[in-house]
């Protein structure tokens, strides 16, 4: 009896813990959604809970603001960043995974990740300034590559580690060069990993505020910068900000959900075997 009581108690406590966690995570989303539906007259009044919902903020953002352009900028920048990162990161990860006597070298990629972005921003800014790439999408892409390439490389090493070396040996015996073996045999096998890495890199670039804030202007402004810019000297335009936040979050949620299975494997990455 005691055991069953304990079991019930622990189950009860566990359920409470899970619900608490869910509420803690989801409440901000719910609150932001409420804010987005508040009439502008009540904007900046988080204490008001009962009001007439309106789509005014939504139509304002979609039809009468720079946000659609910012979305486009963010999307374009994230997409190009990811494509370049995959083109560079996949061969790099393959190399790190394969070559003997080189196992510790893979951790040097993480070192690049550990560097605070503030170290890079000054040289990057000067460089882009000289190249007249301030307030250009290319400039932001270059900045984003500094952290997306290492992450994608790190992410993919684990996937390449799991592909038996015999397969590329076999392809080379079958009449292909090492490079052909890589892209005809090995890459198709790690395709789930490539997809997951791409999503991961996309989200990183999509969410970046630091570099975008300092390197973009009116033309190349990204969505996170636009969100931040609703905090004006007149106060916070909470309703519009809420709309922009929701627009920014939704693709991240969908993409993360789509790759959750591969996400853990990639982050745990190299060395961890399942």
């Amino acid at each position: 009896m005691i055991i069953s009581f304990e079991n019930q108690l622990s189950r009860f406590l566990g359920t409470i813990a899970i619900f608490t966690a869910i509420i803690v995570v989801l409440f901000p989303f719910f609150w932001i959604f409420l804010e987005s539906l508040k009439p502008p007259s009540l904007g900046g009044r988080p204490d008001v809970w009962f009001f007439e919902p309106t789509w005014e903020n939504w139509s304002e953002i979609v039809l009468n603001s720079g946000v659609p352009l910012n979305i486009l900028n963010s999307f374009f920048i994230a997409l190009i960043t990811v494509v370049i990162s995959l083109i560079c990161g996949a061969p790099a990860a393959y190399a790190f995974s394969r070559f003997r006597g080189f196992h510790g070298a893979r951790y040097s990629i993480l070192a690049a990740e550990m560097m605070p972005p503030a170290i890079l921003i000054l040289p990057l800014f000067l460089l882009l300034y000289k190249l007249e790439l301030i307030d250009s999408r290319i400039g932001v892409i270059i900045a984003h590559l500094t952290f997306v390439v290492p992450v994608i490389t790190w992410f993919l090493i684990g996937f390449f580690d799991e592909v038996p070396k015999d397969l590329e040996d076999q392809a080379m015996i079958d009449g292909y060069t090492r490079f052909q073996a890589f892209y005809k045999v090995i890459l198709p096998i790690v395709r789930p990993g490539l997809g997951a890495a791409a999503v991961f890199g996309f989200v990183l670039s999509w969410n970046d505020l630091f570099y975008s804030l300092l390197l973009t202007g009116a033309e190349s402004r990204t969505l996170p910068v636009a969100i931040a810019s609703f905090w004006t000297f007149r106060g916070i335009e909470l309703g519009k900000m809420a709309v922009a936040i929701l627009i920014a979050v939704i693709p991240v949620l969908i993409l993360s959900y789509s790759i959750q299975k591969h996400l853990i494997r990639g982050i745990g990455g190299s060395g961890v075997k399942y």
Partner: peptide, 20 residues
């Protein structure tokens, strides 16, 4: 010479079939 230039074929212990 590279493996592909030697005109040989090999069967591996785990068969090394291309899974895709």
């Amino acid at each position: 010479l590279e493996p592909r230039e030697r005109d040989i074929a090999m069967v591996f212990q785990n068969y090394a079939l291309y899974p895709t």
